[in-house]
Design a protein around this nucleic acid. Structure first.
Lengths: 205, 205
DNA sequence: CCGGCCATGTAACAGGTTACATGATTGT
DNA sequence: ACAATCATGTAACCTGTTACATGGCCGG
């Protein structure tokens, strides 16, 4: 239920419309919590129904009306409770890990191809992330509508993303070296034991 | 679509039933790709419908019949294609990161409470993971139905899980120190600019 | 004239979680 | 007597993705 709480988190800084929120998500947390506008609008309606936010329509001339949402006390309590919640720091699902697990089914050149591509993607990703961190006196960032002085926790999450990507890149490069040295001795996966005889026979030869 | 391919990956090592697969998932990849039996059975039916596996019923005495699935050539091709696919190495969503982003809404003691709890969870998680890695001559593991000689890529994913958790733990501990030193200067999130006047006013004071 | 910004939504679909449901056998 | 193992499924639900839909205004 993180989208709900992230929206409430942003509403703590002032009333916003769905459109506002979409832009804010894209400019701040889209890195580790992307959100489509379709989802935002739906969630906002639910927040209002649950009494965590109130809505009022702001008519505009020449532009469509805005529906501006304001957080309520109940909403503030909900954010607070969520922030104190224990959330696992490691995601339970990793598509690249499950791919890695089965890499042994490929030939060595194919494995190296996959891993080198991975490394390249990571390098590019890191570059992109680094570009988003404005220096202490970043005029370009100021002009482009971004901001030179980042909030401590905003900077933190950006930094974490970069350092984590670097960590993964190091690991992938180590793995490439291992594969190049011929470390992976091919052998069946060892997860298949203590099964009925028919299946054992089917797995063995 | 990773569950589908993970199942096919396991089927490459021999025909298996849904029940078999559930146990295999729990003992091997549940760490980074958990699967419920409800999902496995459904997916198996779909694999058959798509011609990626064939099913035959194995009657048993005293036990329910087994539906044993065998991978087809089309299935093998599907796994192969999937393994060559480019999969992002960093998950796009991280619940703990989005929580971190809003930590500034809490008081300092609360922030430290959250972070220290996180560190504790990570330490416990690391211990659990380490216990699962059998040493080179691990009799206990052999007796308990696990296996002492791990396949290269099986070991790899386990190792990655541990190293990544250690990396995150180090990062959390660094953050705790920063917070204790009083580094986080409180200031509004800086993501709210270039907005219509009404909203600006609402955010500013 | 066309594309982009403003601003809102709906609907279909895919993937995963939780709970409900059945029923025989085996071990404590 | 009770719980666990074996073995299969269904159904409701939640979250997120993708595509479809509308419509005025402004700049190149």
């Amino acid at each position: 239920m993180s989208l709900k709480h992230a929206i409430l988190g942003f509403l703590e800084f002032g009333p916003k419309s769905g459109y506002d929120l979409k832009r804010i998500f894209d400019r701040s947390v889209s890195n580790f919590w992307p959100a489509q506008h379709s989802q935002i609008y739906g969630t906002l309606a639910r927040l209002e129904a649950e009494g965590l936010a109130t809505m009022n329509i702001v008519p505009q001339t020449g532009k469509p009306d805005r529906k501006v949402y304001t957080i309520t006390d109940a909403g503030r309590r909900a954010v607070h409770d969520w922030l104190l919640q224990e959330i696992p720091s490691i995601a339970p699902r990793s598509a690249s890990q499950i791919q890695t697990f089965f890499l042994g089914l490929l030939s060595e050149p194919e494995i190296l191809e996959v891993l080198r591509r991975r490394a390249k993607c990571l390098e590019e990703g890191i570059e992109e992330l680094v570009e988003r961190v404005p220096g202490p006196d970043d005029e370009a960032a100021k002009r482009s509508g971004r901001c030179a002085e980042l909030d401590f926790y905003t900077y933190l999450t950006l930094d974490f993303g970069i350092e984590r990507a670097r960590f993964v890149l190091r690991w992938v490069n180590d793995l490439i070296e291992k594969v190049e040295r011929g470390d992976p001795k091919r052998g069946g996966l060892a997860v298949f034991e203590s099964r009925s005889e028919e299946t054992k026979k089917a797995n063995a030869p």
